[in-house]
Design a protein around this nucleic acid. Sequence first.
DNA 1: CTGTTAGCGCTTTCAA
DNA 2: TTGAAAGCGCTAACAG
Lengths: 358, 358
Amino acid sequence: MTTSEPTAPRNGRRRSSDPTVHDVAERAGVSPMTVSRVLSGGKNVRIEVQERVEKAVAELGYHRNENARSLRPGQRSGLVGVTITNIANPYYAEMLGGVEEVASEHSRRILVGNSNEDAELERQLVADFIGRRVEGLIVVPSGSGTADHLRPDRLGGVPIVLASRAAADVDADTVLIDDVNGARQATAALLAEGHRRIAFLGNRLSVFTGQRRLDGFRLAHQARGLTPIDELVRLGQQDVSSAEIAMTELLALPSPPTAVFSANNRNTIGAIRAIVNLQRRQLEQNPGTEPAASRLRLFGFDTFDFADMSPVQLSVVDHDARELGRRAAQMLFDRLENTSNSASPRVIELPVTLRQMP
Amino acid sequence: MTTSEPTAPRNGRRRSSDPTVHDVAERAGVSPMTVSRVLSGGKNVRIEVQERVEKAVAELGYHRNENARSLRPGQRSGLVGVTITNIANPYYAEMLGGVEEVASEHSRRILVGNSNEDAELERQLVADFIGRRVEGLIVVPSGSGTADHLRPDRLGGVPIVLASRAAADVDADTVLIDDVNGARQATAALLAEGHRRIAFLGNRLSVFTGQRRLDGFRLAHQARGLTPIDELVRLGQQDVSSAEIAMTELLALPSPPTAVFSANNRNTIGAIRAIVNLQRRQLEQNPGTEPAASRLRLFGFDTFDFADMSPVQLSVVDHDARELGRRAAQMLFDRLENTSNSASPRVIELPVTLRQMP
DNA sequence: CTGTTAGCGCTTTCAA
DNA sequence: TTGAAAGCGCTAACAG
């Protein structure tokens, strides 16, 4: 299988390791430098020599060591580091897809880490990424702890773009969804329909979007001289099942809400489950009649696979996770490749669309 | 901000670049070797010197260059390369989460690439990953072209685990879902209920799981001396909207199916949409009566967020994408860390669960 | 406990 | 058009 000297360490170097430029050079009867030249496009190399080198590369199964390569000054690592708070959440997965798409267009690979909403883990990930000499970072800041480790002056000159959430005291390029307006408009629509007892289901307030969406909910009320009803505001549901429980509790109140604004898709799905369960119970008790729970009005932030098939009347504040990822990556490559390197941080907010599900 | 000589290139080396062990050593008044020792745990270094070095590290914002580090023989890159066919598909996103989880437990990072079902892109990704000296590869083989580039002898000794799909002529560790059995059992259940005109909605047959799930569908028929009805078998729907179209066509046949087996969640969702649309049309024409489409029986491979709220009676073949990712990663680290390195490739099939949605 | 030397694989000079 | 030398940042091996 190998070329010659079956067992002995050829050249005094350990064998059975990856082939190097040296090995390729030897086999092609040229110097390592010529191999290097062929590998970077073959400028100033006789075509015949190029072919000889390429043959040796193929025969040896040679792969240029990118790590060694990136060691030379002026060479880029070709890597972008991305940390998200929950890889398994389809929303961030979609966002990651957008990042990958743009990175790929720029011939970069993405290193992916899951911070799991843990600031310390996020700090470690970012440090590791910098150690690997990523050219830039895209971070969905975790919703816990401080974010000092994300401050541009702590990153050794590696540009960073925050996505989906801003972070306190971090003055960096940021791409956000227009949470406040989305929540405000949705709530305003419910108020315009005459609802006065509107529930709010949302994330912890330490999560940036959680706070912003509650702000929008409040603003819409204020615009009519109203205040949200405290007992109808439930925060801290991170997953579908806790949202379902919270919604079930709301429905069991002496004076239950007539409408619900849910601040993310996990809460929306949980709310739907709770409502459907109540409908079933009501139908069992009063067969044939329209269950009272059917009149409940639901407006949710985010969409999901099946939103238009919801068994409960539903409207959504729609936005595009993939576009979020794309824009974040574009901002990063702007910094990387344009001379506008020193421009002050930009914050952009992507618009949302209110959508009535059929 | 910097230490001394504000502008002049200190030490003859270019300034304003990342600090190196050398810089840290100088600032701490020790040799680079001592810095290296402190950074790798501080064995055999006076505690007082350790503190001095750590102080210098912090002040300089030093990050050890992992690429340079991995250059030394015997050092591992700490990277695992993962290619999936569609990052944005929640199923693979979930799988990626499982891979990341296990990789993280083993202190490894994941490099992620999207092959987009394109064999050539996949080949490039794998070559790039090997060039970056990943310690192992986890690949969901693309459903197009040949897979020669995945053969273990072409990977320069980097271990590979195939996930979710096998690849022709590639004899490697593989983790699969038990597609054949899942599809067989689901189809058998429909046949046992008395259905004889069962539609099949699925992927292209060049996609491994597509072929296997159709095999299971066939086997269940054969076990009863039956054959699938050709005009009811629709292949090649890759997304929800094409699945909806295919299902709509089936429903418009002179003799439509009485039951449907859909081979993945995209097709299931498309089928549900088509059925719901037909129900609505039938209700408009004959208000008050139970629409004929409501009697249609649906059995789908994969679950999704809202499966239990489906407006159409639904059963699913459930399986765990996250577990698939975990197991693939575990197999990889088995190869990497155990001495069982030379064992012949293993193929494991993860069980599925048949689940009646309430 | 600490420093010196050497070299990992690659490519940018510079010289031939 | 080609090659030799040097060094990117790091750490084993060997002094001291």
